[in-house]
Design a protein around this nucleic acid. Structure first.
Lengths: 213, 213
DNA sequence: TAGATTGTTAATCGATTAACAATC
DNA sequence: TAGATTGTTAATCGATTAACAATC
């Protein structure tokens, strides 16, 4: 099940649809949803909803709409969220620890949330060997072995900016294929590794622009 | 100094340029930078760099380039980062506390980083009255008065999803003009208030798509 | 059947890139 | 002056929206 290169803009909307469908799946009154309704709930135009979905197949019935649970399952499958994905967080400072707790809670609460943080890494000997919400903190030196051993394919970088690139390099060397970077620096990864940036200060600086009235 | 409606895509690149210029400003060897060089460092094409800047004025010299410090100052001014912006964080859980520490450190370390977290709000009576890195934690009930009193114009929502919309409503009522939402829900704000979403699980779900090889 | 809604094609809109005259 | 690089216009590219035939 491999599709041609589908635009990033399309992919970014899929989790939005999935969230709406996840909520609706609990409501026994709504078995079906139209692109119109799904669009309103996700904040996307109805035509765009249909076009986005059409990249991956024909999921709806003309004159009827989309079956909520069916479409939800399809989207989960498309996003690779139908089986567990193991995640490492590098950097067990307050930010790293906060994400660990946050993601762990999400995973524990919702059996269909298959993103599971299984390891933290840190340099601080005082932290190594401890646990955060049951997630072990390993030494950063063990990163490569542990990542391989635990079959971790995704990682979150929550280290200081200076260490971000080195961390990324080591993760990539260990076989990580997707990285979410919280450090406020541009980092480079080779072809085939996907990088997303979640840069808090960048977001705040953008927001500042709109403050002038 | 008000410009016509400038695209969000343009605004999002300005902090990228600013970051490059901030770094370069410390280097006494580089007084000047070309759109070419600035583009490479920011990960943007040279033509786009020039076009982005041209929306706000003529900052360069033909045949020469842009003066680093001058352009940095202009960008700061454009982004409203030339004077202090006071920020509130609502929700002093581990995520809220982590951001507070993070932003506070940034502000303390760098005198040109004018984004200052001055208040936390929480419902938990055990937290109210305490401090995190010197930032006071107030009761969520005091939100409106405190926000007005402290002249807070920007806020970060780090509360559970269920409370996100109510929190946003209260912030808006108190005069907040820009909100960064970390809760994994769509929230609505009136015209004139700017909303950005930093949804961790959404980012991770997007990344999951790219895991298939 | 009549009404509704899909999947898809064509039209529109907006953003990026290329090109180049102006000029430092 | 010759070389370099800007600001800006025109060309290209991509993404969203509108429209509609197909069909449930």
């Amino acid at each position: 099940m491999r599709w041609k290169k589908i635009s990033d803009a399309v992919i970014r909307r899929l989790p939005l649809y999935l969230r709406v469908l996840d909520e609706l799946a609990n409501d026994p009154n709504t078995q079906l949803i139209s692109s119109q309704d799904l669009g309103v709930r996700a904040g996307v135009g109805p035509a765009l909803v249909r076009k986005d979905l059409a990249w991956f197949g024909e999921f709806g019935k003309q004159g009827v709409g989309y079956e909520v649970k069916f479409l939800r399952d399809e989207l989960r499958r498309i996003l690779n969220l139908d089986s567990e994905i193991k995640i490492a967080i590098v950097g067990a400072g307050s930010l790293g620890a906060a994400f660990a707790r946050y993601a762990h809670k999400r995973y524990a609460d919702d059996s269909s949330f298959n993103l599971n943080v299984v390891a933290l890494f840190d340099n601080d000997p005082g932290k190594v060997g401890t646990e955060i919400d049951g997630i072990p903190v390993y030494s950063a030196n063990e990163m490569q072995e542990r990542v391989r051993e635990l079959q971790i394919h995704m990682a979150i970088i929550a280290v200081p900016s200076e260490q971000a690139q080195t961390t990324a390099d080591r993760l990539v060397a260990a076989g990580v294929k997707a990285i979410l970077n919280f450090a406020p620096v541009k980092i480079n990864v080779p072809e085939g590794v996907h990088l997303a940036s979640a840069d808090l200060s960048l977001e705040l600086q953008c927001l500042a622009y709109y403050l002038r009235d």
